[in-house]
């Protein structure tokens, strides 16, 4: 290039006005969309907060620790639902995290030839595509009849443990938790698998090169290196479990009082309460439901913030 001395036809390096316009328009357009999403969230929160205001003024923070939900007396407290939400989500995580991470390990390593592995990866992700009402139906007609004898046995033999202190009555917290576990399993498995696949091949080779076995490599290098991704997936799954409505409403029994810690007893979650009562609610009850919705909103927010902190604190720098 340096040898060309022909200045008569300089390269046209100017950008046309049209491309500049498109460029600027793109920046402004995407900015506006991003802000709109934030605004939408704020508007929803404000609206819910405004509608909840009468209940907030009447019950205050006592709403969170009272387990009395009586439409007739106009007394509302959401402890039963908050407890139900936390316990069903916890049961779901307890079951789904080990299985989901196990599936992720199996599907990210070369245990299987790709021709067999790919369909399995697809099937696991397909679990996430089943509508939650179908999970609910399956729970009612298949899972609960199957679980009942187990629940009766647990109550008869381990009834001294508070968790199993009541006799099961068909639907209940444990059935809802179990179905939630199945529903969040694909989220955990898929995100954890992506996290493990993304661990640089050099780290595997380094571990193998030092004489680590496959298991040592997986547990001491790959899992820690993929930890932030896995934790992110678990938190996303927890958010899903806390907000899940249809399947839980169909399986939890919808009892608005809590009289034991038993997971075999019936209960309700914040979202099942909302789904059950909104259609016929009026007056202060609507406001109380809005308050409960705000609490759920807050719970998921706390989970997400905690997740962010955990991921930042423990994520390994790659």
């Amino acid at each position: 290039m340096a040898s060309t001395t022909d200045h008569s036809s300089p390269m046209n390096r100017k950008r046309s006005a049209a491309t500049r316009l498109i460029d600027d328009g793109f920046v402004w357009g995407t900015t506006a969309i991003a802000i709109a999403v934030g605004l939408l969230l704020a508007v929803i929160a404000l609206q819910v907060g405004e509608d909840a205001l009468p209940a907030i003024q009447k019950f205050g923070l006592g709403f969170l620790v009272s387990n009395r939900w009586s439409v007739i007396d106009g007394e509302f407290g959401a402890l039963t639902q908050i407890y139900g939400t936390l316990v069903t989500s916890f049961i779901a995580l307890l079951i789904a995290v080990p299985i989901g991470v196990g599936v992720a390990i199996f599907l990210s390593e070369d245990f299987l030839p790709p021709r067999i592995k790919q369909p399995i990866v697809f099937l696991v992700e397909l679990l996430a595509a089943i509508p939650s009402v179908v999970y609910g139906l399956w729970g009612i007609f298949v899972l609960i009849p199957f679980l009942s004898p187990i629940g009766i046995w647990l109550n008869a033999n381990l009834g001294w443990i508070p968790l199993f202190s009541t006799a099961p009555a068909g639907p209940g917290i444990y059935a809802a938790g179990l179905v939630l576990a199945i529903m969040i399993l694909p989220i955990i498995a898929a995100i954890s698998r992506d996290a493990m696949v993304a661990v640089p091949a050099e780290l595997r080779q380094a571990a193998y090169g030092l004489g680590a076995t496959r298991w040592e490599t997986i547990f001491q290098i790959l899992l820690p290196a993929g930890f932030s991704g896995i934790a992110g997936g678990v938190m996303l799954a927890l958010g899903r479990a806390m907000g899940e409505t249809m399947a839980v409403t169909m399986l939890i029994g919808n009892s608005n009082t809590i009289d034991s810690f038993s997971i075999l007893s019936q209960g309700s979650t914040v979202s099942s309460l909302l789904a059950n009562q909104f259609a016929e609610a009026g007056g202060l009850q609507v406001s109380a439901l809005m308050y409960a919705a705000l609490v759920l909103f807050g719970l998921t927010l706390v989970v997400n913030v905690l997740a962010e902190i955990v991921v930042r604190r423990f994520s390994l720098k790659l």
């Binding site: 640089p200 050099e202 780290l203 080779q205 380094a206 571990a207 290196a225 390994l316 790659l318």
Partner: peptide, 9 residues
């Protein structure tokens, strides 16, 4: 190895 590959530890 060719590319330095310390563990993230």
């Amino acid at each position: 190895f060719q590319k330095p590959n310390p563990f993230p530890k």
